[in-house]
Design a protein around this nucleic acid. Structure first.
Length: 355
DNA sequence: AACTCGGGGCT
DNA sequence: AGCCCAGAGTT
């Protein structure tokens, strides 16, 4: 049965393969650097989102040694807006490690790839399989959904990855392992979709247990968790004489690590922070703060943020005033030289910053 | 084992 | 409004 499934998947893949910039055509093995870069970017991120970032990275840094010579801030700047910024930090670390300790050569086996920063079980399997033809099961969210439906796995979501991997160990992966992996992901992404799977025209329907049971769309089982809301104030402080704004560089650990941001209160649950206690830290004279009526809404992975933005135009008396050492004035036309997360771009837009 | 990490797109 | 996505790292 697994042999038949693999055969159907490869046949489907040969006919429907998407042309993607990190894929090599004509059956050649792709460049490991391209595979690695794409796989890191694709972690929890959709293909259409990744493509423009991938091209920009490749243009700036055509090889792993080029990337290894870049600074952390350059990489963060190119990564801005892509999210999960720790990936950018690990990308930087990994490039330096491979360039300096590995002589610019990627390891080829699952176990050795797993030792590298930013590379976990999925990515190690994907790189070894796609770039080095290693017969390793590659299990991402797409494959989990496909296997859960093919084998009617009515088990908790957290257990599906392990079970899927076990099942795939019994699949014949020796012939074209990378294509098998990518065929499963492409197939689940376009046929065995999360919502409204195309079961009626599915080439695997005769092999699908959940299709026979009529429960394909309910699998894999989902578990609900409610997101809390947090509340914060942001300050957009403009220096009168040169249209510069007060920014701070966020810590290298935690949320939005190493990116630029506007001064804000703690993002606290349940209640609005004490606004005067907050802005008096930054503004010796805090009259004339214009509070924007419409609050900013932003969704993070595990909470919503609702924020109000205050705009303040600083008088000449605080031209050289910098409240904290991690802060700096940045002229409006230089802001785009720094790495700003999408949330902070919303704040900038809300208070009308233009270059 | 559970939590922390973005942002866009779909329903 | 909720869930999804070529998951990894930390606690």
């Amino acid at each position: 049965m697994p042999d038949e499934i693999v055969k159907i998947l490869l046949t489907w893949y040969d006919k429907n393969q998407r042309i993607l910039p990190w894929r090599m055509v004509d059956g050649n093995v792709p460049n490991p650097y391209l595979v690695w870069l794409s796989e890191i970017m694709l972690q929890q991120t959709t293909v259409p989102t990744v493509i423009p970032y991938f091209y920009r990275f490749l243009e700036k840094w055509p090889s792993i040694s080029d990337l290894a010579r870049a600074s952390r801030d350059e990489i963060l700047h190119a990564w801005q807006g892509l999210g999960y910024y720790n990936r950018a930090h690990k990308l930087h670390e990994c490039s330096i490690l491979i360039s300096q300790k590995y002589n610019n050569i990627f390891p080829s086996t699952y176990n050795n790839l797993l030792l590298l920063p930013g590379i976990g079980p999925y990515t190690a399997a994907a790189i070894s399989s796609i770039a080095f033809n290693q017969p390793v099961p590659v299990v991402d969210g797409n494959v989990e959904r496909l296997m859960a439906r093919l084998y009617a796995l009515q088990i908790p979501k957290k257990d599906i990855k392990k079970r899927s991997t076990e099942i795939l160990q019994l699949f014949p992966l020796n012939h074209r392992p990378g294509d098998i992996a990518q065929s499963m992901m492409d197939f689940a992404n376009s046929i065995c979709t999360w919502a409204k799977p195309k079961c009626l025209s599915c080439p695997l329907k005769n092999h699908c247990k959940s299709q026979k049971l009529g429960i394909a769309e309910q699998l894999p089982k989902r578990e609900v968790k409610k997101k809390p809301t947090r509340y914060a104030y942001f300050l957009c402080i403009e220096r009168n004489h040169d249209k510069a704004f007060l920014f701070y560089k966020r810590p290298l650990k935690g949320l939005l690590p190493g990116l630029m941001g506007f001064p804000s209160t703690n993002w606290q649950p349940h209640a609005w922070p004490d606004a005067p206690a907050f802005y008096s830290q930054f503004l010796p004279n805090h009259d004339n703060i214009q509070w924007i009526d419409t609050p900013i809404q932003h969704t993070f992975t595990h909470f919503y943020l609702e924020a109000r933005v205050g705009k303040y135009v600083a008088s000449n008396s605080i031209i050289n005033y910098v409240p904290f050492p991690n802060m700096q004035w940045i002229k409006s036309c230089n802001i785009n030289k720094h790495a700003l997360p999408t949330l902070m771009k919303k704040v900038a837009k809300t208070c009308g910053i233009v270059c």
